[in-house]
Each structure stands twice: as structure tokens, then as C-alpha cells.
């Protein structure tokens, strides 16, 4: 009697423990995913409520005021927002072309794998250097190295507002350059993955139609990898805007705005790092407000990235 039931049941029934495991897996992973979302919301909520006093006091004027005076309790973050945007922009300006170039070089068959693998590894290692080490390197190596170049820029192109001051040693441009090195491996590694993921069949199709290597790269491979590359750039931009330690060490931490990238400046994150420890009252709230703005900026970057990727993504 037992045989007949088990026979008919066989093909459809899996053991209970296996089903349970399946269900359990879905639940556990689901809980983790929701958990991450909740943490994000909790942080946003906390930063939001803590910044409320400053928001009520300064309103949107906070974004347009450059004065940051603890004594007068007048706070405005324009200097820092400008610093954040400009340093990130400089970083992208340098790191995007180099990063994509490196990625292309390492995804094509210019080098035998024996040489290519170690180079890929070394570039990824760049991402593993602690940012305080970058900061030290910036102070002792990069800034002295950049000084003559800064002086030359100011002497010859001083009429352009962004080069209008004599270099002060530390400064916005040094921070931008440090950032570019820090985000280079992100861009290079993600772009390379995106390029390598383009199917060889498509590459062969282009060559088969008589495309040269360059035509194939620029008209087929890069467009096909576009969404992945943009994703990498946006991740790098997020990193650049949030990076604190190295920037704080080389930017000079001046709270007065100057358009010149050769001058000292500060970013939202360097401001937070510098002031949080001994801040109180409205200053804390203003710092929270600044943090909220940084939060907003990164959110905008990510949404933009998502839109760009959707708009241009090429399905493979």
C-alpha cells in the first residue's frame, strides 16, 4: 500500500526540507534587502530631523551663502558645495578619459594575458590604498610637484577666473587630482568589465564587414558597453563627492569662496570632518544640513545615472 502512494507522488513531490530551504532562502535574502533600505531611510531621517533648526533658520539661503561664522552663528555652505562640485569635476575630467583608455587597452588583445593580468591586479590595488595614505602622499609629493605647474598656469592664464590666484600649496586643484587617482581604478575596472562583456560575436561581425579595429571599438564596442561605463563613472563620482580624509588633508580647508582652483577651499565632507568634533547648537544643525545637501547631491547623481543608462542602454 505504501508503494502505490509513493509511486504516484514521486514525480511532483520534493522533500519538505528542500521546500522549506527554498522558502527560507527567499525570506532571509528579502529581509536583508529590506534591512539595507531601512538603514538608509533611518540615516536620512536622522540627518533630516537634526538639520531642521538650521533649515528653519537659513532656508534655501544656506545654499547661496558663503559665510561660515561660528561666532555670529551665521552659516552658509556655498563655498563647500562649490568645492565639492569643482573637485569632483576635476577628478572626472582627468580620470574618465584615462580610465576608459586603460580599460580599452586592457580589454583588447594588445598584451598577452601573462602581462595583462598583473596590470589589471595592480590597478585594482590602487583602490585598496587607504585614503589617509593618499592624503600623506598628496602633502609630501603631489603638492610640491604641482607647485611650479600652478605658478605657470597663474602666470600665463591668470586672466581666466579659475586660475586667477597664485597657488597656495594645498588647494582645490590638488584635491581634484588626488581624487582623480582615487577614482581611476573604479572607472577602469568597471569599464573594463563592461567592455569584456561585449560578446565576441559582435566584434567578429564588425570585423567581418571590414571595420578596422578603431571603427569596431568606437562604433560597436564602446556603445555596447556604454551603460556599464556610465555606471562606473557615476559610482566614481559618488566616491569623489563623499571622499573625506585625503581631501581634507590637501585642500587647505578655507571657508571663504574663491573661484580659482589654485586657491584653498573646502568640500562638504572636509567641512564636516573639520568641525564636527567641537561643534554645538546651531552649528551642529548646520553641519547636518550640509550633510543632507551632500546626500541630495549623490542622490541626484545616482538618479541621473539611472536615467542615462536607461536612455542609452543597448540591450545585448
Amino acid at each position: 500500500m505504501a508503494t502505490s502512494t509513493s509511486r504516484t507522488a514521486m514525480p511532483t513531490q520534493r522533500s519538505n526540507s528542500s521546500r522549506l530551504l527554498d522558502k527560507g532562502f527567499v525570506w532571509v535574502t528579502g529581509a536583508f534587502a529590506i534591512g539595507v533600505g531601512l538603514v538608509l531611510l533611518a540615516i536620512a531621517y536622522r540627518v533630516g530631523t537634526d538639520s531642521l533648526p538650521a533649515i528653519q533658520r537659513f532656508g534655501l539661503g544656506f545654499l547661496a551663502t558663503t559665510r561660515w561664522s561660528v561666532n555670529d552663528e551665521v552659516f552658509g555652505a556655498l563655498t563647500q558645495i562649490y568645492g565639492t562640485l569643482v573637485t569632483s569635476f576635476i577628478a572626472l575630467l582627468i580620470a574618465v578619459p584615462i580610465g576608459i583608455g586603460v580599460a580599452l587597452f586592457l580589454s583588447e588583445d594588445y598584451l598577452p594575458p601573462r602581462i595583462k593580468q598583473p596590470i589589471v591586479f595592480l590597478i585594482e590595488l590602487l583602490a585598496a590604498i587607504p585614503s589617509v595614505v593618499y592624503g600623506l602622499w598628496g602633502i609630501f609629493v603631489l603638492i610640491p610637484l604641482l607647485r611650479p605647474f600652478g605658478i605657470w598656469l597663474n602666470a600665463n592664464f591668470g586672466w581666466i577666473p579659475i586660475f586667477s590666484t597664485a597657488p597656495a600649496g594645498p588647494g582645490i586643484y590638488a584635491a581634484g587630482i588626488i581624487l582623480s587617482i582615487m577614482i581611476l581604478p573604479i572607472i577602469a575596472a568597471i569599464s573594463r568589465d563592461a567592455l569584456v562583456a561585449v560578446p565576441t560575436e559582435i566584434r567578429q561581425a564588425a570585423y567581418g564587414l571590414g571595420a578596422t579595429r578603431w571603427e569596431t571599438i568606437f562604433q560597436i564596442i564602446l556603445p555596447a558597453a556604454f551603460s556599464g561605463i556610465v555606471g562606473g563613472i557615476m559610482l566614481a563620482l559618488g566616491r569623489a563627492m563623499g571622499e573625506t580624509m585625503a581631501v581634507t588633508m590637501v585642500i587647505g580647508n578655507s571657508n571663504s569662496i574663491d573661484l580659482s582652483i589654485l586657491s584653498q577651499g573646502s568640500t562638504v565632507s572636509s567641512l564636516l570632518a573639520n568641525q564636527f568634533a567641537e561643534a554645538g547648537g546651531l552649528q551642529v544643525s548646520s553641519l547636518m544640513y550640509a550633510a543632507l545637501i551632500l546626500f541630495g547631491l549623490t542622490l541626484v547623481v545616482n538618479v541621473l545615472a539611472e536615467l542615462i543608462v536607461r536612455r542609452f542602454s543597448l540591450k545585448l
Partner: peptide, 16 residues
């Protein structure tokens, strides 16, 4: 390759 075209085993249209 501009004179001698090729069609491959697996369809490989460009993602365009």
C-alpha cells in the same frame, strides 16, 4: 573583408 562578407553560425546583430 569589405569584398568578402560573412554570416556567422550564431545570429550576431549589433545592439543597434
Amino acid at each position: 573583408r569589405r569584398q568578402i562578407g560573412m554570416v556567422f553560425q550564431k545570429p550576431n546583430p549589433f545592439p543597434k
